[in-house]
Design a protein around this nucleic acid. Structure first.
Lengths: 359, 359
DNA sequence: GACAGTGATGAATCGAACC
DNA sequence: GGGTTCGATTCATCACTGT
């Protein structure tokens, strides 16, 4: 703690991000988690196929005139965060393709040292309704030390334990914040447009801090960082300029019961089912385009295409759809119906490939 | 093709990336796939922002200057790629956290319009031996159109088919390039340090090009882009400055057997299916004049006329128009909205009739 | 109470062909 | 190029309701 500045702990500070950061003492926090505006640049309105309206992020705080303005803002608050961060502290950022490249570049230019980029793979993302792009199913986090030569904390064993005794990878599979976890106003509408799931912050905080450490969130919003920090026995400082959000976060955090020393055991995360698409067998060359599939009794023969579809007679589509069509059945599990005709004429059930890949 | 420049197809051009790009005609390729170097030890080939050459043995460069040199190099070759790219073409980049933020920022600054960032999740990444970070288990790709307002190709149906009839997401699970696919020298050592798996290029090329399109790879390396392009019936241009890599890639690609027209036939989309008018169902007696149509919830009932129009309340017109009118929606796909009430009272979706007729 | 079915919704840079 | 028409387009999750 320096310069006689006090560090206000376990509160949401109401005010402008940069000004408030400037009032904090240097080298005083162990970690920063920042979820800045994404600068989404949405143009029109978007409807679902059922004509319902997609509730977009159109808030004033996400509007910037151009990349230069966004970059200038980014560098200002990142500079202050770096000043406030202890030499052995680390910083987390989260963003999407709209802004994450600006953030990463600024980070590197300011002297931070990137340790990992981490992918939050969303279990249940919003689909792409118009079919014009890939489903945007992830967000990117960046984890960085204050400088290249800095010591930093990484709780390797905790992360490994959280991942069934395998090293924690840089891709994390976590559901969106929905249901009862999502804060709502009196009318039942979501209080904050971009509330992050507690599971995400749980992993972040557990990975790089210990009990009693101070975590700063300069864009506190709905207060997820503070809530998880308190539950895990960490201290926090939140900064938020919207009084409604700040008040809701204070109430939310006040209701949190900190875990005892014993129960600080990591919450088990939902296990992901390995899902294999037939197309990936084609991509990987395990099944060649042009190959022949047949059923157990060799009654039907189907040909494989480069896109992972198959064709049999006039039917073309997935292994499941074509299997159903030839049998005139309402549905069919193509994995257990179709066999690959191998070079020697022997049959190999597709499901065997799947088992091999998943294992 | 402009300025009398010839476009050299299906070859690896040996030479400096930027110089060779400058010799290509503008707006001549349909897609670019670029896997640029990202070790920042390229000093011998890097230029300062003022285009002067960076001295390879000059250790006085600080971190910022290194980044500036890398950025200048990046902007130079990206500018040339943008010139060579057709207006309706798209560009793919791949990188890791060391360079991907520089690449993405440069893309945006040069006027490219990011469509997706895509995560290549490695099935078998190298573990983190020292236990000081998360296992770096992914690389990031960026997919971008030439400008914000540009039309571009996205083979939505092919990507959906490749993913078992679910929309393709932005996170791709693909193994590293190993085993027989990996090119090796006489001593059995891997020929190229970062050879990309063919499965990755298969998905990239299938997603945004059609047969006969030209794909440019300015950092061709081991030639994966050319190999997969040739197999899928696309044309390619590779650029590589290392003669050993270029020669190995030429040999590799020469051995590729292109798939036939059948196996690479484009995935049929609904739009390309033979157009069926609702009236033809009435003409053929599949739907009787006077029959009743209703929606899934039996909220509305409409009567069928001999001319293929339907009426519901005061609304009369096509299945699309009346469907939109009763829902007070701007539009409606009548095929997937209306069901025929059959003799036994059961409902049959009109789209099922259409599928039967088309098949 | 269990289970099935329904409806709502999530950081989204989300037409194209034709006259 | 601008205006108009046609028609194509969604996955996982969870709260809630009804049987």
């Amino acid at each position: 703690m320096g310069a006689g500045l006090e560090i206000p702990l376990d509160r949401i500070l109401l005010g402008d991000c940069i000004e408030t950061l400037r009032a904090l003492p240097p080298a005083s926090v162990h970690a920063v988690f920042a979820d800045p505006p994404y600068n989404l640049q949405l143009r029109g309105t978007l409807h679902r196929p059922d004509h319902s309206l997609v509730d977009a992020v159109d808030d004033a705080w996400d509007q910037f005139t151009d990349f230069a303005a966004y970059d200038a803002f980014t560098r200002e608050w990142l500079t202050e965060c770096r000043r406030v961060l202890r030499k052995d502290g680390t910083l987390w950022l989260i963003g999407s393709y709209h802004n994450i490249f600006r953030l990463g570049t600024a980070l590197q230019d300011l002297g931070f040292w990137i340790l990992n980029d981490v992918i939050w793979r969303k279990a249940n993302p919003m689909p792409n309704f118009r079919g014009r792009r890939f489903t945007n199913a992830h967000e990117t986090l960046i984890w960085a030390a204050r400088s290249e030569d800095a010591k930093y904390r990484f709780n390797y064993a905790a992360m490994k334990a959280l991942n069934d005794d395998l090293q924690m990878r840089s891709d994390w599979y976590i559901p969106l914040c929905t249901g009862n976890e999502r804060l709502r106003d009196e009318a039942g509408n979501k209080l904050h447009p971009t509330q992050k799931p507690e599971a995400l912050l749980h992993r972040v905080i557990l990975s790089c801090t210990q009990k009693g450490d101070v975590i700063l969130d300069p864009f506190s919003g709905s207060g997820t960082t503070g809530a998880v920090a308190k539950r895990l026995g960490r201290r926090f400082i939140g900064i938020e300029r919207d009084p409604t959000y700040a008040a809701a976060a204070e109430r939310r955090i006040a209701a949190i019961q900190p875990l005892g020393d014993v129960e600080t055991a990591p919450t088990p995360t939902r296990k992901e089912q390995p899902r294999i698409a037939f197309g990936s067998l084609v991509e990987r060359g395990l099944v060649q385009p042009g190959a022949t599939l047949t059923d157990r009794h060799r009654r039907w023969a189907a040909q494989v295409f480069a896109d992972g579809t198959i064709a049999c007679g006039t039917a073309r589509g997935s292994i499941h759809g074509v299997g159903a069509a030839v049998q005139e059945a309402p549905s069919c599990n193509g994995w257990t119906f179709w066999h690959l005709v191998q070079a020697d004429g022997a049959l190999k059930l597709l499901d065997v490939f799947r088992t091999e890949l998943a294992g």
